[in-house]
């Protein structure tokens, strides 16, 4: 495979191969090795048409640990984020000899367009496109769950994962639903009906509006960031009411099984969808998710870029 655009493009086996590769790479890192020669001579471009410091840094660290040359191209506010010149930008990157483009873009499907436009010969890695998908986040979430709750080679069969919050606008949710189901987990979405997509029935998930009822049954809960501007778009009446119904606090967290994990893709709105007490509790693996992100992105870069040369 040349491009990572959507979780739906991955077979179950290849998804597991990414996770097991990440597992090996994290052990290499833990052995003290900071740098591997794997991608020496390869050029990786971080093309970020939308702010996301943590995803960009994570991909940058991953690429550098594999000895790739990294060019950061922050295009926010430029014509790229307006979408007028995705083609022109792509042709520039092609001229620079990019072996891979890590693309973050506010438009759903932007990575598909970049990959299918035949403007570049390198790999396109989707680092989040609009409200569509964020495959590397889903892979690092699955990796984190696997490390805590499963055999490192196995899938997530038998686990029950809840995703809580703004499903409608969440690329993290879309990728996670696809991947968790692919790996055998059961998924329940918890949100007010306004933040669940119309026609969610085709997703093969459960939907609940009662967080207290769902928490005792889950092995992990993924809390999504809630944008305050959704309030003005009438998705919910107030942030106070949202927190009361769909935020996680210590009392709610105590409903969970003892082994259950609290996850969040970040950045967190402490006090809105998650209280500081829960975010910093022993059940929270939020910081570990960040560390795992580097290993998973190293695995992605290795598997999608190494050897992907037409000569």
């Amino acid at each position: 495979m040349r491009h990572l655009l959507s979780i739906s493009d991955l077979s179950r086996d290849f998804a597991l191969e990414i996770l097991s590769t990440a597992h090996e790479l994290s052990r290499v890192s833990e052995n003290g090795t900071k740098k591997l020669p794997t991608l020496r001579g390869k050029t990786v471009v971080n093309l970020f048409a939308e702010d996301s410091t943590r995803t960009r840094i994570s991909f940058e660290a991953a690429a550098k640990r594999l000895s790739a040359d990294v060019i950061n191209f922050s295009a926010k506010g430029s014509s790229v984020s307006k979408g007028e010149s995705l083609k022109d930008t792509a042709q520039t990157l092609q001229a620079l000899g990019a072996d891979a483009v890590i693309l973050r873009h506010p438009a759903s499907g932007a990575a598909h367009r970049l990959a299918q436009g035949r403007w570049i010969s390198g790999s396109v890695i989707n680092a989040g496109d609009g409200t569509h998908e964020h495959p590397s986040q889903a892979l690092l979430d699955a990796f984190t769950i696997q490390r805590h709750l499963c055999d490192s080679k196995g899938d997530l069969a038998g686990l029950h994962i809840a995703i809580v919050g703004d499903i409608l606008h969440s690329r993290v949710a879309r990728s996670n639903i696809l991947l968790l189901k692919k790996l055998g987990a059961t998924v329940t979405l918890v949100a007010p009906p306004t933040l669940i997509p119309f026609a969610w029935q085709s997703w093969g998930v459960e939907v609940s509006h009662d967080l207290d009822a769902v928490l005792p049954t889950v092995d992990a809960v993924i809390m999504l960031r809630i944008q305050k501007e959704r309030m003005s778009d009438l998705y919910f009446p107030s942030s106070r009411e949202y927190s009361a119904l769909f935020g996680i606090n210590a009392e709610r967290a105590s409903l969970m099984k003892s082994h259950a994990l609290v996850m969040h893709p970040g950045p967190m709105n402490r006090g809105l969808e998650i209280t500081a007490e829960v975010a910093d509790s022993s059940a929270s693996v939020v910081v570990e998710q960040v560390a795992n992100g580097v290993s998973v992105r190293m695995a992605i870069l290795y598997l999608f870029i190494a050897g992907n040369q037409e000569d």
């Binding site: 097991s20 790479l25 794997t38 040369q309």
Partner: peptide, 16 residues
């Protein structure tokens, strides 16, 4: 990860 043919061969799974 240390092979010198990574540029020209498809990636292979990592071993323990």
């Amino acid at each position: 990860l240390h092979r010198d043919d990574l540029r020209i061969r498809p990636p292979r799974p990592l071993m323990d």
